[in-house]
Design a protein around this nucleic acid. Sequence first.
DNA 1: CGCGCTCCTTGACCCAGGTCAAAAAGCCCG
DNA 2: CGGGCTTTTTGACCTGGGTCAAGGAGCGCG
Lengths: 251, 251
Amino acid sequence: MNSCSPRPIVVVKSRLPSHCEECDARHRSVCNAIGTGDLDRLAAVATPRHIEKGETFIEEGQPAGDFFNITAGTAKLYKMLPDGRQQITGFAGVGHFLGLAVSDTYAFTAEAIEPIELCRFSRPKLRTLLDDFPLLEKRLLETACNELVAAQEQMLLLGRKTARERVASFLATRRAEASLCGNHGSTITLPMTRTEIADYLGLTIETVSRTLTKFKQEGKISLPSRDEITIKDPSWLTTTATGEDTASAFI
Amino acid sequence: MNSCSPRPIVVVKSRLPSHCEECDARHRSVCNAIGTGDLDRLAAVATPRHIEKGETFIEEGQPAGDFFNITAGTAKLYKMLPDGRQQITGFAGVGHFLGLAVSDTYAFTAEAIEPIELCRFSRPKLRTLLDDFPLLEKRLLETACNELVAAQEQMLLLGRKTARERVASFLATRRAEASLCGNHGSTITLPMTRTEIADYLGLTIETVSRTLTKFKQEGKISLPSRDEITIKDPSWLTTTATGEDTASAFI
DNA sequence: CGCGCTCCTTGACCCAGGTCAAAAAGCCCG
DNA sequence: CGGGCTTTTTGACCTGGGTCAAGGAGCGCG
């Protein structure tokens, strides 16, 4: 879940067999398990593809035939209830590997929230690759473990945190991710709408909006534009995210 | 997350190197990736251990030195906020493999809710085993993927379901697990208290109790004893769990 | 540069589920 | 088989965040 493209969308890459070499995602995805010498092996089984904003490329309940690796853009991953209620389980950015279900149907839907470039791997081809590069399997396991840790953190958020804490946690996580991508400023860029933030945090759009407004009134953040948030008090953010500010004197 | 011991706790097993051969967990855990011929290799690196009810064997934030495989009993896995709010992220039963963090500290706490028998693997020893048995690594990846799917389902529950739907989902899942373990009756046995159910479902104990009472009044379940629930209307359970009963006519 | 989107904010009101408090039901033991 | 636990149930009340309903503000486009 590391989306790192505040810069404008890159020009569509050459689709020559060598496309893996200069891939933006290579160094932050499982693909780095494959040495430069073997990159043509990887490129041979990876089909690049462009996904328009709003387009869906994985659908919950559909047969799981392919795996995807995002090389540009961001997707939202979500599950839905029969009456339309929606829970976004995560955002997938550059380097994110998708479709890791053992079951033969996808467990969630993936939809582009900005234009996406990705590599598609068919199940059998990935299998061959995994058999030939055991390190790739290890990297996939690592990735899955990291996602599991993130999922548990999100369960804590959804099950036990207040609206304030949820929004603060969201901002804190977004900022941490931006840092990882080399962006150390205190302004974060959000590729998602308020509705999507709400569906991710288990809140309504109104509550997200109200909470952000309150943070602004308290002087903790500012909202320079619709999709930018400036953190004016980073340490306040982390304490608020964990409820430490509310946790009164103990014993 | 499959706990399968309605029968009384088994007598402590012999701790001879052959203990893996007759292990209850063998056929439903990652250990089945290792052939019978190599079981002594597995037994050599696995240290059996007994955990008392209420005892903690993994602690959030502590250095992650060991992995565990549960062979009898059930544990609750949880995360806590500074002020004591608790979210149970799952229950780990027989065959469950724990400690799969890539990071060097545990991301959650694991506490026995009934007496537990488990096998402990030190990190380096498991590493050796993984290098020698690639199939084991594949099975671990599978396991991690399954847990990821379960975690996403739980996020949907915590973020978007009503109290009724949460409790119904919990009962439905428990029943499905019991079926997997060969128990096809309509009565499920719960090793956890109401408080633990509440901390798992992101509710309070009062709401869990009230909801169960209402289900009973509606004739959908009965509560023969404190830790047993009989499902009298299985199809109602599944529709209620997904909110299909509330989803009014569409279009 | 103003028209018509879509997205966001704000306000007024409401209710599911939380909180607080007490009674009831098990349940372990001697 | 009764006394002191713990756990669960039930009741009365309250509140955080949901719902419903208007505005307002960006922003692409002709």
